[in-house]
């Protein structure tokens, strides 16, 4: 893999050769292969040494999305430091260089991303600030004016009153195509969602699609990058809020959302920067849908593993652990737990 990256970078940088080292696959990803590496090269004037991250499409994953799509969302936030993202460098949509589509971005150094690390005692002092920042940034994403940005080239905005149905249809179809066994709890949730639709979205916003602890890069002084935009789209901003609140992300199992913040504090931070007020009934609708979405993702991963398209153990784990856990979450979301 080093050789392929070296050849590609030399081509893109217009230099005779590039030396790649410290190539490591970053653990945790269940949807894309993410690799980090160092690259050194000389041009006519000086020696360069930079760190990069490569995101490579795998044969199968939890998510079915286009690499070009994710790249466009990252690019849209260049020049908007209030929504920090890594700088994008190169995108390839064909298999000719690495065997699959990929993009390369700058690596933001010396950051953590693990949802468990932030729970360690070392982070106790910084944790409340990081938690508040997480939702302040999400509020800014909700308020971001995407019109005229790279996002418009890859996705069409839905109507205000169509956001809920588009998402519900999408995730129901995902379950239709990937369930290994019937899902009576998810199907009951879907019937409830269709019978009790939420009001139209207050505005059409950028929706990250996987906004949770684990998908931002942090140091003790703040959040330096929002990553993993592969499920990003335009829609109701309450969707991101509901997804970030999902019980599956309560890493400490203490009721704190994302393991780090009480729900009311999170909503207050989000409302402060988004300029919007959370409709609690609508948020509950999105909470149930996010339970269905979670199940659809776990079923997709389990299906990929079961049919042999992927041998990633994390996808087997979704089948043995997360499918039933997500059903338990759905029962609680619908007020149907014991």
């Amino acid at each position: 893999m080093e050789a392929a990256i070296e050849k590609y970078l030399a081509l893109k940088l217009g230099v005779p050769s590039v030396k790649v080292s410290h190539l490591l696959r970053i653990p945790g990803g269940a949807s894309r292969e993410t690799w980090m590496f160092k690259a050194v090269w000389n041009d006519e004037e000086e020696r360069h040494a930079e760190e990069f991250v490569l995101r490579l499409d795998p044969p199968a994953s939890l998510v079915e999305s286009e690499r070009e799509h994710e790249y466009a969302f990252y690019r849209a936030f260049e020049g908007h430091p209030e929504i920090p993202v890594p700088r994008m460098r190169w995108l390839e949509t064909g298999p000719e260089h690495m065997g699959a589509p990929f993009f390369i971005m700058d690596r933001i150094p010396n950051c953590e991303s693990s949802p468990r690390t932030i729970l360690e005692p070392f982070w106790a002092e910084a944790r409340p600030m990081l938690a508040r920042r997480k939702y302040e940034i999400l509020g800014r994403i909700a308020r971001f004016d995407w019109r005229g940005s790279t996002i418009e080239s890859v996705i069409a905005p839905p109507a205000l009153d169509a956001c809920w149905k588009r998402e519900l249809d999408y995730w129901e179809d995902m379950i239709d195509r990937h369930e290994i066994s019937p899902q009576p709890i998810s199907r009951a949730a879907i019937r409830w969602l269709r019978a009790n639709p939420p009001p139209p979205a207050e505005r059409i916003s950028v929706v990250h699609g996987d906004y949770r602890t684990g998908n931002f890069l942090y140091r003790t002084d703040g959040i330096h990058g929002i990553v993993d935009w592969e499920m990003a789209h335009l829609g109701d901003p309450l969707e991101d809020l509901a997804w970030s609140f999902m019980e599956a992300w309560e890493w400490a199992r203490d009721g704190k959302k994302g393991g780090i913040i009480d729900v009311e504090d999170a909503i207050a931070a989000w409302e402060h920067t988004s300029g919007m007020t959370v409709d609690r009934d609508a948020l509950r609708w999105w909470d149930v849908l996010m339970g269905v979405k979670g199940q659809a993702l776990w079923l997709t991963g389990a299906h990929s593993f079961a049919d042999g398209r992927s041998s990633e153990l994390i996808l087997a784990m979704t089948a043995y652990w997360l499918n039933n856990f997500q059903d338990e979450i759905l029962l609680r979301s619908m007020g149907r737990s014991a």
Binding site: P184, I185, A188, Y320, W321, N323, N324, D327, E328, L331, R336, S337, A338
Partner: peptide
């Protein structure tokens, strides 16, 4: 039926 759906998650529950 809801009782049975709840029971179905209890039957499938695994300990990590």
């Amino acid at each position: 039926i809801w009782d049975e759906l709840r029971a179905s998650t209890q039957r499938r529950h695994l300990m990590q």
